[in-house]
Design a protein around this nucleic acid. Structure first.
Lengths: 233, 233
DNA sequence: ACCTGAACACCGTTCAAGT
DNA sequence: ACCTGAACACCGTTCAAGT
């Protein structure tokens, strides 16, 4: 009957946030916050595959199994880490005068926060974002789009489109930067040009300058233009 | 000097496709295709976390370590599986009369193919898609958008926006369906309403009917509207 | 309520050896 | 060229016991 067993049914992703959190700090002062920031640090250093419970515990100066008092499964650590990344996202307390500007800024800020932790895009795209920091950012997006005139299903869809485009773009971008990006790009380009008869349109493009930021900016403008048009009815 | 060591530098994601593939089939008739479809089958059954090399090998009736002749690392298996999913995506041989219709159909088809294998969205979002089947679909998108009038950076950005929005949306959707979705939704809604003072806009929405398909359709239309407007200059 | 310690089952990967 | 077999290092998780 420990807290970690309190969740009903199977462990579902994001479930850390729906369980009651242990409020008091133990004899080592171990809190979710301390655990989260250590996990972030190790993910930054070792990447998603490099993370391991024993190293996290060692850095926190506790026994590996101690962590199981604070989380139910390893994946919970990832949820804590992702929410910590969202906390880095600046959240304006006043809405922007022009809602399009507000959403645009949010999209670029979100991209930067996720890119600062290369593992976070992959996680944000594949796990429900239910932490308090992530929810606060969602609330901001909902509020901005509601002010733009969206309601009901369209409001939910517009908000989803905004976050899914950003997170999807960042995840794709980060997936290239895991290895040696330049070598990878050259290999792909060679491959495309060697098979130009199969991929004529793609072979024409030059990936020489991988201008990720500019490409993302264009992507964002495409969506913003569509949202603006629909908001006008 | 085995083939798996042929790649220069560190193992980068998607690298299976850039290495020369062993052309002939061995005494067990083990090919990349057979391995790929077995991996897909096991992922469908056990999920991403449930996949293990030993089980794959057993099902193929070979020794676990035999797989290392055909791939360099476990992740290569995932790349093979993702490309196999892309192969299920119907690819029209004639372009649509209206390019918007063509892209719209592609987006919905891609969503369906990825949703049919719940693990594939997470993988597609976090690994470069360099397999032949995935590239062929990208080529289709590039060609359609080029016909719409996009060129250079804007063409690349438009294509990226289309695939990233779809993959990002599917990954998010699938992340909810890993566990008991209904229970999860209810818990989240309770949580939002209990904290309605923090999340006023979100608390208002009813997540009763989780109409994923309708929401995705709206998201797609937002992007398509923006693309159409930009294409008109 | 929070942490320790021992122990278990599992799994990706290497490497030398076979045919 | 392709496959086997033994072996290694590692790692998430459990459970009973401590304070």
């Amino acid at each position: 009957m420990s807290p970690k067993k309190a969740a009903t049914g199977p462990v579902l992703p994001g479930a850390v946030w729906l369980r009651k959190r242990p409020p008091r700090r133990g004899q080592h002062g171990l809190t979710r916050e301390r655990i989260a920031s250590e996990v972030v640090a190790q993910l930054d250093r070792a990447g998603l595959d490099g993370l391991n419970l024993r190293a996290v515990a060692a850095a926190l100066d506790v026994h590996p199994t101690t962590l199981y008092w604070h989380v139910a499964v390893r994946d919970d650590l990832l949820d804590l880490a992702v929410d910590a990344v969202f906390a880095e996202l600046p959240l304006p307390d006043r809405p922007a005068e022009d809602w399009v500007d507000g959403i645009r800024t949010f999209m670029h800020d979100l991209r930067m926060a996720l890119l600062a932790h290369s593992w976070s895009g992959a996680l944000a795209s594949s796990r429900p974002l239910l932490g308090p920091e992530a929810l606060a950012r969602s609330e901001f997006v909902y509020a901005a789009l509601a002010r733009a005139g969206f309601t009901g299903d369209e409001l939910a869809a517009a908000a989803a489109a905004v976050t899914n485009l950003v997170i999807g773009s960042v995840a794709a971008e980060a997936s290239w930067q895991d290895g040696d990006e330049l070598t990878a790009r050259r290999a792909v380009q060679e491959h495309l040009q060697a098979n130009a008869h199969i991929y004529p349109a793609m072979a024409e493009l030059s990936f020489e300058t991988s201008a990720w930021a500019a490409q993302f900016a264009h992507s964002a403008e495409f969506l913003l233009a569509g949202l603006a048009e629909k908001a006008r009815h």
